[in-house]
Design a protein around this nucleic acid. Structure first.
Lengths: 224, 224
DNA sequence: GATCATCTGATTGTTGACAATAGTAGGTGG
DNA sequence: CCACCTACTATTGTCAACAATCAGATGATC
């Protein structure tokens, strides 16, 4: 008889599970910005008690994804235009740090790791699927940081990816041109392959500045 | 009658208070690396219940200062030599990001903000007080990031400062030469004042590399 | 009619008790 | 004497009940 199936199904702690579920809900838009997280309802939905739920929420508070107001409850952090800029500037700093590490003897490995997301992005672009490109975009950047092997850069990036998706969530992710989006990422991979650190950094910074300007323009609708 | 003194003494939430207390204890060495945090004892000492204490601990788990092992408890994270490198590399990325922001129209303000810590460092160096120099060192770098105004860089830096002190905690902070330490910081401030971003970055990177090599050398005692 | 006080409902904050797990000490058999 | 098994103890994980607080509604007063 298969014993493997009836052992206590808890590999990870309850708090881990709940925190991950909340993170996913925020990222996917199931929890909107500014929305309050009712403890009783959430606990019931996740089939846990309020205790572990509150512990998990504190994890996301520490990450800045949730905000706790005393005697009022916890809310999904609302991102202002200033926050959008801050997110991309921070990502820029983190990802350039990752680039430096990756350039130091991990180039081939990194190019290999980034190729799948590039391929996916190219396919999505050909289909004209903006969400597909967006997904591949995030995978690319998270993978880049993962290749750095830096625990702390990776940890910071995990939160930043969620925040990036929160920015995009409200407005449909419409790139001006899907093809150019693919090209920008390809160029970064090329620079990594060549080992030209400064060029890779320049491309990355330009890429991020583009994104932040696109988002800022969307947020403050052009004077009509 | 002074009503200001009898209002409920809770400005901040209990979790905030406990989390800050734990962070301070870790930074000051009251909680050593690898040490287990007994819930009952700690709760009693902080005069709170286990509930809020556990919530506060989860915040530090999210920051990476504590590690939770299922059914075993939470422990202060142990920093390996690889971690020390990682901490300084991450700080390097974060602080360079801060430098860029600071250089963009906040130079005078930043120089003003950094001057006190430089003065304190100079005084401590004159006294021959290595701990004094170390304190001023941390103040300097945290202040630099604070001047960037970036919420996310500041948040990351707060954790990194604690981790930096954890590295230093075990071995006495002995700089080879206190005066040169002061000089390095002065040069960074000068570069900020002049607005030469690249020079400031170079100085900062060199400063961090020095530190990490000094620590690595101390950790793996020279082959005896 | 507008404003303020009070009341009510619901939600959060905290606590203590209970259940489950892991480490430890003691005992038994080889 | 060592290895293994068993019972115990201490600690963590979870939960439900209680206390405290806030937002909104209701009603009274000017």
């Amino acid at each position: 008889m298969p014993v493997g199936e009836l052992r206590p199904p808890k590999r990870q702690s309850t708090v881990d599970y709940v925190a991950e579920a909340l993170r996913g809900a925020i990222m996917a838009g199931g929890l909107q910005q500014g929305e309050q997280l009712g403890e009783t309802e959430l606990a019931e939905r996740l089939d846990v008690s309020r205790g572990p739920l509150r512990e998990a929420m504190q994890r996301l508070v520490a990450e800045g994804l949730l905000e706790a107001v005393r005697n009022r409850g916890v809310f999904v952090t609302e991102l202002s235009t200033a926050d959008v800029e801050d997110i991309y500037r921070t990502r820029s700093a983190i990802e350039r740090g990752a680039l430096e590490l990756v350039m130091d003897g991990r180039r081939e490995e990194t190019v290999r790791a980034l190729t799948p997301s590039i391929t996916a992005m190219r396919t999505a672009a050909r289909r004209g699927s903006a969400p597909g490109v967006s997904d591949a975009d995030h995978t690319f950047h998270e993978e880049l940081v993962a290749c750095s092997g830096s625990l702390r850069l990776i940890r910071a990036m995990r939160t930043l990816v969620v925040e990036t998706r929160m920015c995009l969530g409200e407005l449909e992710t419409t790139y001006p041109d899907l093809g150019s989006q693919v090209r920008e990422h390809e160029e970064i991979v090329e620079a990594i392959g060549e080992g030209t650190l400064e060029r890779a950094k320049e491309l990355l910074v330009a890429h991020m500045d583009d994104a932040v300007q696109r988002l800022a323009a969307k947020r403050v609708p052009p004077a009509s």
